[in-house]
Write a protein that binds this DNA or RNA. Structure first.
Lengths: 192, 192
DNA sequence: TCTCCTGGAGAACGAGCGTGCGATATACGA
DNA sequence: TCGTATATCGCACGCTCGTTCTCCAGGAGA
């Protein structure tokens, strides 16, 4: 990897971490440059605009998500074990500091049209689709009843994760994880 | 109401609407002044600082929430009818443009310590407590099984609402409301 | 009528914003 | 090792930010 690509990657790492706590719009070229220990102009040269930076942050985050959440889950056996692995991996993912980038970006941008919002929508839609697919497989593999609607189940599971995010990160409820796991188990029980 | 208090109220109305779409931190004295058709300094005189403005926006929002969500629900008979009324009122509340202010504020500020975050936490904790209380009453009134944990159920219901918010506002899923209602009914079924 | 007091306008501040432009230092293929 | 391409810097731009200060219009009370 060339020097340029290397620092670019380092910048995106820092930016992603930053964005998780202050939001995509909360990132500032100045503060990011300081965090990354570069001059503003030196950093800026890697991205032609702030918007392009935001888009690349999302793309970078998506890559990490694939590696840290999707991939481990796909390593588990198809069906319910994979469903559980996915859920566990997500819980762990949301425990990095600042929590899940996409949860933050979703409610930040849900009413602000533009390319960045479009990108967030694509990320979330992809995630939803992956989740649905994994659940659907659990149906076709016979783990879940045949009349289970994978999309509804994805909606429900997503709710559990979002509620966990809020109880844990905002309210600081120590029982958040326990609650989330319990809710998730109930979803599985109902589906079997 | 004095002239001052009148315009102050008008400003807070505008600010709350604005905050729902761009976030509490996204509010700017300049844009807010333009929206409210006042000069920056004229507006600023009503609030001694931006932080104080944000806090008052939250308080203003909390007032509206009480009037538009809590009050109608408390008008319904205790127990399950009230639980349903609360859920319906919230769904309607989240359908104003920009959606629920507190959902937006929650993930925006969950990792940014300070008085504003503290205020958001109080709002959400109060909401959670109200929700739990209404559910608990449904247990003691015999609508739900005695072994139902109201706090867990509040966690679950909250998840349904958050998932609705995301599916509806971000992804624009036309089935979001249907999905939310279905998920909610299942929660009630399980609790009865 | 004169005098306060309140609500708001206008202009200005220092700081930080995103962005662009040379100049320079560093990395890397020949 | 050299030459060029690339990475990074310093500096400055026009703007907008939150904040402050001075000033004025007009209504209330004497």
């Amino acid at each position: 990897m060339s020097k340029g690509a290397e620092t670019r990657e380092a910048i995106l790492d820092t930016a992603t971490r930053l964005a998780r706590t202050v939001g995509l719009g909360g990132i500032t070229i100045g503060t990011l440059a300081a965090s990354a220990e570069l001059s503003k102009s030196g950093l800026y040269a890697h991205f032609k605009s702030k918007e392009s930076l935001q888009l690349q942050v999302l793309e970078h985050g998506r890559g990490r998500f694939t590696r840290e959440v999707l991939a481990p889950a796909l390593a588990a056996p198809r069906g319910e074990p994979r469903v559980r692995a996915l859920f566990d991996a997500w819980l762990k993912w949301d425990s990095q500091d600042g929590g899940c980038l996409f949860v933050a970006a979703s409610s930040e941008l849900d009413d602000q049209p533009g390319p960045v919002r479009d990108a967030v929508v694509r990320c979330q839609q992809d995630w939803f689709d992956s989740l649905t697919m994994v659940l659907r497989t659990a149906v076709t593999e016979g783990y879940f009843r045949a009349d289970v609607d994978p999309e509804q189940l994805a909606f429900d599971a997503n709710g559990v994760m979002l509620s966990y995010h809020m109880s844990n990160r905002l309210l600081g409820d120590p029982k958040a994880a326990e609650r989330a796991r319990h809710a998730f188990e109930e979803l599985l029980n109902k589906a079997r």
